[in-house]
Every structure is written in structure tokens, then in C-alpha cells.
Amino acid sequence: MRLAIDHRTTYRFSEPQRRLTQLLRLHPGDTSNQTVAGWHVHVDCDARMRHGRDGFGNHTTMLYVDGPVREIEIAVSGEVMTSDAGGVVRGGAEPLPPALFLRFTPLTTPDDAIRAFAEGVRGGTAIEQLHRLNVALFERATVKEMRLVPRRTAAQAFAADAVTPRGMAHIFVAAARVLGVPARYVSGYRSDGAHHSMPHGWAEAWVDDLGWIGFDATAGLSCDDHYVRVAAALDHAGAAPVAGSRLGEGTERMDVDVVARES
């Protein structure tokens, strides 16, 4: 499948900022089932960009902007060829072993409710257990794109009436780790032709003999050729498309517009 992605992030500041420093994870890497055909990151002001990779193997771009800045738009557009592998991810940069992805982080620390929920799906083969977890999450939660609560934990998301894709992925990751299964957060895109106010997020879990498998609890399915993975880490904080810091007074407002469609 050939997918076209258009992802715009705009920051508006109430006061001019003297300096912006941002860590972008906006560049997908190639895997056996994902080939980046073309990719552009455009910033609408004078900026210095430096490319690198983080410890998880994700492509990173450091963005340095001198002020005064009142507004900045980061526009990402590109095309990716994908194929369906039943959610199995192979051929990516994997500098760290699955064992690392068993540790809990502040965003993915399970509470008693998540632990109980995880215990409820325990059993069977590793892959059955993960599918059960994915479907159970899909069935219990109302997924909704809404203003994100910064630093919302898996436990908070689990207790809420409605959950964002990010929250769903965090709950999945926390529960999988409770079950002793290495799991991680993935940020990327899902092609459905619609406009979204945030990039998509899902989870990957490790199954011996198969490898990393993508699970999207907002759909109750494993990932297929509609998905483009961009970055993976222990939780969203490590895989965030944009981690930014600004020097200046005032408040900021972020607007995101994402469209991924077949081309």
C-alpha cells in the first residue's frame, strides 16, 4: 500500500519567544514492511536542524530557532510503501533488547486496577494472551480525540471515561508488562483519510520466535499496512513527535493536523 502523510504542528505563543529548542521524532525508518519513498520536514522560519538517532534507534532532528518567535509551523509530508505482515515488525533498527521493555516508567506504572485487568486476560499462548488484552481494552473503552492532558499516566487513563489513542497504548503497555511481556509505545500514523488533531499511537509487544508485534487497542486489531511507525520507546515521553523547550514568557498553544491516506 502506498500511503501519503501530511502532518502539521503549529505552536503559537502569547509572547514572543527568545529561543526554541525542539527534539523532533518525525522521520520514519525503514523496516521489512515499510519503505520510506519520500519524506520532508519543513519549518516556516530560520532554523538550524541536526539529525541523529536516539538510544532507541529512532531518527531524531534537533531544531534550534532564534527568537523572537511568535509562531512556528513544522510541516511533515511524505510517502511510505507498506505491506501487511500481521503486525510483525522486522528489519527495524533495534539497538536495545526486548528485556529492556519490561521496566515500568512514570507514565506506564500500573495501579491495582490495571494489574487486575491484566490478570483477567492471562493465560494461553503468548500471542493469544496479547490479542485477548487488545480486544478487552478495545471493548471496555471509548476512544476519543480530545485535548491531551499532559503527562497523563496509564492509571489515570484507565480510570477515565474516554481515552485517547495514546492513553490506550499506555494502558496496553502497562498491562503487558504486568504479564511479563516486553512492550513499548509507538507513535506514527494510521491511514483513514480523516483529519486528526494528534498523530496516532499504539503498542508493540514482544513474542519470542515472532518478534515485535503491533497492537492497536483503539481498533482491537494488530497493525497492518495502514500503519506507518515513526518512533518507539518505553512510553510516549520517549517517542513523542515533538519535545520542546522555549525561552520566553507567556503561554503556548499547539495545534496539530494529521491526515494519512492511500495515494
Binding site: 538517532r53 536516539d54 538510544g55 532507541f56 534507534g57 539497538p95 536495545l96 533488547p97 528485556a99 529492556l100 519490561l102 521496566r103 520507546a233 518505553l234 520517549g238
Partner: peptide
């Protein structure tokens, strides 16, 4: 291996640097 990878003092952000 779990002594390292399960240990919060092992910083994955630094791996490879």
C-alpha cells in the same frame, strides 16, 4: 541481562553514545 535492563540506572537514552 535483566540485572542491567531491568535497572533504572541503565539509561536507554544514552545507549549507543
Amino acid at each position: 541481562a535483566d540485572l542491567i535492563f531491568g535497572n533504572p540506572q541503565f539509561r536507554p537514552e544514552i545507549a549507543g553514545l
